[in-house]
Amino acid sequence: MMKDNYRIASYCHIKNNEISLNGALIFKGEGPFKTFIKMAYQHFAVDYPKFFKMDNLSKLAFMAGDVLLKHEKVSPEQEENIAIVFSNRASSLDTDRKHQESIQDVTAYYPSPAVFVYTLPNICIGEISIKYKLYSENSFFIFDAFNPDYLFEYSSSILDSGKAEKVLCGWVDFDEENYEAFIYLVSREGSFIHSTEEIKRLY
């Protein structure tokens, strides 16, 4: 199998209250993340009530995934073997801090399972897998900064070994009020070459 034969079919950015698909702005919202992401949910008529139970990281990753997979006409009715490989810097620290607050003071001790379950970064992969019925490969990496090199090699290895047909790959980070998603779909077909340089350029 030729390693360089893979392509990037589509990519999606979410940052600074904007969502873009393949480089073109498709939605602009306002306010803090909570307001912005709700506006986006309404704008794209996501209609998925579980969304409102998610933590910030999962909302961010889910929205990016939903925009991209819809565009790629991926549907839960037709099963596809799409691996999900995500990475970030802050892991689930946004929610970790909330859980820590709930146990810091023994006189105000109120840990909640609904919060605790989100103290793992890979939960956002689970959320996308549930919506799109993806029974596929999962990996969540933590890097100091976006690392196209490792992501490129890891996605290529999953495709080379035939463990998945496509890989939904990228960066989903939420820390304090700073957030950024950049995800892309690696496939056999697409307009962009799958290479470290091209991933860097699209990022």
Partner: peptide, 26 residues
């Protein structure tokens, strides 16, 4: 080389073995 941190809930430890193998095969 730059460290690769894997944080994938309770499968992390065994997934790390798979990931190591994949980077080696690559």
């Amino acid at each position: 080389t730059e460290p690769i941190v894997v944080s994938n809930a309770c499968v992390s430890g065994i997934l790390a073995v798979a990931i190591a193998k994949r980077f080696i095969s690559q």
